Structures are given as structure tokens and as C-alpha cells.
Computed example of a mutant assay.
Amino acid sequence: MSDLLSPGRKKAKLDRLAELSAAHDDERGVSLWQEAFRRLRRNPAAIVGTVILGVFLLIALVGPFLVPYDPAAQLWKDEIREAQAFYPGPRAENWFGVDHLGRDEFSRMIVGARQTLLVGVVATLIGLTVGTLIGGLAGAAAGLGGRWGRWVDTVLMRIVDMLLALPSLLLAISIAALLGASLTTVMIAVGMVSVPIFARLLRGSMLAQSNSDYVLAATSLGVRRSKVALTHILPNSLAPVIVQSTLTLATAIIEVAALSFLGLGNPDASIPEWGVMLADAQRYLDAAPRLAILPALGIIITALGFTLLGEAMREALDPKLRK
């Protein structure tokens, strides 16, 4: 039958069979993470978020070594006239102008990016670590069953429920006020706010994975349920937690700025941080609104980058959206 086909049709048919075979091989050999990475590369939101975060990381890592002036030096204090509400704006020597103390605003924005990134990342790591420990222990205990397993799961989840019952910002303010104003306090306060989110998410993911076929197969082969929970269920339940950590970074940066705005951030004014800069600029909104607009834009754009990348990762790792 194939001999009766024209050479052109025969070549097209062979090409089509080759494409189908390659697609079948790709589908059979591609893992969830490889497929997710492939879909991320084709997602415009992921590309935009990655570019924003790449620029932000580059500024935070390299920028402090390239700033033209010391961010704490009041080099243009004599040019400021408080009585006339005059604060020099953008010009050749000061691209973003100077602040109310005569400090270069551009240098402070660049150095403040590192401080904001440090606080946001450390706060997220604190919440991720504590939340993963609580959620993993609760999920493993619930999967093991028995009286002790149910008791451990119930106690841990009731603690998490009490944390969730409090508004996140109110909880962060309470912790920061209790520990005193400092950079470490802000990290701990913001990190503890995200603990119940990670704990609930990991526990739910582990309970969903405990009904999978590979868990049943491992249990049928005589593997202890504790080993199944730690070596099989837990690693396969971390994908949504990783995605949530990206989204939490955006929230952490905003909450850090809120605590700094309320005066609970770093008391050392010589170290610039976007939230502190935004709080200091409130008294000069009429005379120099750029002092508030610049750090606000930095916070908004950075949070947008983390949000776009996190949402794209959530869609890429969703099994329901896989072809």
C-alpha cells in the first residue's frame, strides 16, 4: 500500500510518524519537574517575574559596591531649607535627588534593596523551616494513625489554628512589640506569621499523598509506615510548599515594610531599608513626594516579581494542567 503513495505523501507520512514517536518518547521520559520547567519557559508571567527578580537580585548583590556616595553621609545638608520646604530633586550629581537629611536618595535606594531582600528571605526561611517541621510531623503522625498519631496531629493543628485565628499583621506587631524594635525582631515576627500557612499546606499535601498507589505498594512490601512517610510521602509533598514560599516572599517584603513604617523595624537610621525610608518620607509628602514614591515603587515591583513567578510555578506544577 505504501508503494502506491507518491514520494511527497510518503515523506510527509514518515515525518508525521517521527514526530509522534518523538512526542511519545518525550512524554514518557519527562518528569514533573522537567515538564514544569519547560512550561515555565513558555509562560510570559514567569519570564516577566524572573526578569524583575533578576534585576532586583543584581542590584542587591552588586549595587552597594557601585553606589556613588555613602548612603549615610549628609553631603548636601547645607542645601536643604526646611522653612521653604526645599529639598533638591533629581540632578546630575543626584539622580533621585536628596532626602530630608541631605543624603543621596539613589545610593539609599540601591543599598536598601539588599536590606529588604535580606529581611524578606530570612523571614521566609524562618517560616518555611518551622512550618515544614510542624506540618511534616503532623502529616506523618496523621498518616501513621493510632491513638498517639491522632493525638500529636490534633495538638499541633490546634496550635496552628490559634495562630491562624489572629490577623497576620496584628500577630507580627505583637511579636515585634514583645521582642523590641530590631532587624532580628522583624525577621522573627514576619517569619512566625507564615508558619501556620506552611504547616497547613504541607500536612494537607501529605494526607493527599498518603492515598497514592506507591504508598500502598510500599506498605504491601512491608516497609514501615514511618519510613514511607519520611522517604516517600514527604519529598513528594514539597512542591506546593516551594511554590508557596515564593508567594510568601512577596508578602514578607510588604509586611516588613509595614512594621518598619510603624517604627518596629531596624532602629539604626544609618542603614537604609525601603520600609524605613517610606516611613520617614510621610512628613515630607507635600514638599517632596518622590521620597515616598521611590521606596513604594521598589516594594511594589519586587512583590509583583515574586507574585508572578510564584503563580507561574503553581500553574506549572499543577498535575491537572499537564498534557
Rank of each mutant, 00 (worst) to 15 (best):
P7Y: 00
A257S: 09
L207V: 14
G149H: 07
E19L: 14
W76R: 12
K77T: 11
L32K: 09
L4Q: 05
L171Y: 01
A83Y: 02
D161Y: 04
L32A: 13
K77C: 11
L117S: 10
P64F: 02
A45T: 08
F106S: 07
V55Q: 06
V111L: 01
G305A: 05
K10F: 02
T124A: 04
P90A: 11
Q282R: 14
A23G: 11
S6V: 02
V122A: 08
R103C: 02
L278D: 03
A83L: 12
V51P: 01
R91S: 15
F86T: 11
T154S: 14
E35I: 08
T185A: 07
E27I: 11
D161V: 01
L221W: 08
G89W: 00
W148R: 13
I242Y: 09
R224C: 03
T154Q: 12
E255S: 12
A140H: 01
D78Y: 14
L118P: 05
K227G: 14
Y214S: 07
A258G: 08
L163Q: 06
G120V: 05
S205Q: 10
D25A: 15
S226E: 14
G146C: 10
H100M: 13
I254D: 00
G143I: 02
M187Y: 02
N94H: 14
F306G: 02
A312S: 14
L294W: 11
L309M: 10
K227E: 13
G143H: 11
E82D: 10
L262E: 04
F37A: 15
S182F: 01
D25T: 13
T302P: 06
L163T: 04
D286S: 15
L171E: 07
I197H: 11
E315V: 06
F261W: 08
S270E: 03
Q209W: 05
